[in-house]
Amino acid sequence: MDGTLPPYNEDLVRQVLEEMKILFEQNQKEVALTVDGETGLFSGVHLRHASLERNKRCLLSYIYNRMLRIKGLRWEFGTVLPEDIKYNLCEQEIQWFTKYNKSLATYMRTVGLDLTQDMKPPKSLYIEVRCLEDYGEFETEDGTVVLLKKNSQHFLPRSHCEHLIRQGILEHIL
């Protein structure tokens, strides 16, 4: 995944749903006629039914695969999505993202672990980092305030800067 998410194609989804409605109604009609004794309509009903199932599969796959991508974005960008990406989500997808965030946070609280920490096994408590952009003041958990200025180097607790490294604000120096 390269982090792109195309805009939700509302028009196309609506068109597919309309097509499905027509197919369904035609099928209902022909089934009723068959019940009334007409013959030979079955193949057509079968063909339309297959098309309905196909459309259903395409729509569900579309939504499902977008959902997987949005879930991935949570782990890449954190709890807040960049505006231009968020813009491409439809209303329900934004709701889903919020709920996913909530569930994840609740779960991490219950197990007492931040799952987004230590994505790689830690080898030391403190690490050397260089600042890649002017970020401003950063308060560590023990209350110390560090000024993160471009090109400045710091020796910080690993657990405090892992997220900033993921977001491209700090660079880890070995």
Binding site: D2, T4, L73, E76, F77, K120, I127, Q167, G168, L174
Partner: peptide
């Protein structure tokens, strides 16, 4: 080269910045 323990920026974030 012993680089595996280096923490890196998320590739998605890098790509997003490039595009922007």
């Amino acid at each position: 080269t012993g680089n595996t323990s280096k923490l890196t920026t998320s590739e998605t974030v890098v790509n997003h910045k490039k595009r922007k």
